[in-house]
């Protein structure tokens, strides 16, 4: 089913704030096996010029993907969420995410297209901190694979 082109440019309301916890950062770093001290040791992070422990670069995806999920499950968009795979992922950082941040995500549909039966949606997630400053922008390309011929 072709997706509704009128969704291009649509922006969704900001998500409730997500508070970044130092133990959540530690848990994520351990899960990816990354022992960099800046993720767990505030002194080590400060020695690198950060205000507190920082999160690994891809940590923020957990937050932006949850926000994007609400967009792609919008029934009016018509995307078959059960067939969605992750195509591309990009991040542009103003600064690293750090413990204590209270982050909100504002999702915007950047592009909607159909190629060879696949529905493709590009979603931008702008992540702001509690002061309103932009921290990171996530660009997520989701592909709903064409259904097999019956």
């Amino acid at each position: 089913m072709a997706l509704d082109q009128s969704f291009v440019g649509r922006t969704y309301p900001p998500t409730p704030a997500y508070e970044v916890g130092r133990e959540k950062i530690r848990e994520f770093a351990e899960a990816v096996g990354d022992t960099h001290p800046a993720y767990v040791d505030a002194e080590a992070a400060r020695a690198l010029g950060h205000a507190d422990v920082i999160a690994p670069p891809t940590f923020v995806f957990s937050i932006t993907y949850r926000a994007a999920g609400e967009v792609v499950r919008d029934p009016q968009l018509g995307l078959d969420y059960s067939r969605v795979v992750h195509g591309d992922q990009k991040f542009s950082y103003v600064r690293p995410v750090r413990a204590g941040d209270r982050l909100t995500v504002t999702s915007t549909i950047e592009a909607v297209k159909s190629l060879a039966g696949n529905d493709i949606v590009d979603i931008r997630g702008d992540v702001h901190d509690e002061t309103g400053e932009l921290v990171v922008t996530a660009l997520t390309k989701l592909v709903a694979r064409a259904a097999e011929e019956a």
């Binding site: 990816v32 990354d34 960099h36 690198l48 195509g87 991040f91 542009s92 950082y93």
Partner: peptide
């Protein structure tokens, strides 16, 4: 997450990454 460790371990500061993108 694993692939960027080649960059962050080399650069020394994970906060020095300005842009990062991949295609799966």
């Amino acid at each position: 997450a694993e692939a960027i460790r080649v960059v962050t371990d080399w650069a020394g500061d994970p906060g020095a990454v300005v842009d990062y993108g991949v295609r799966f």
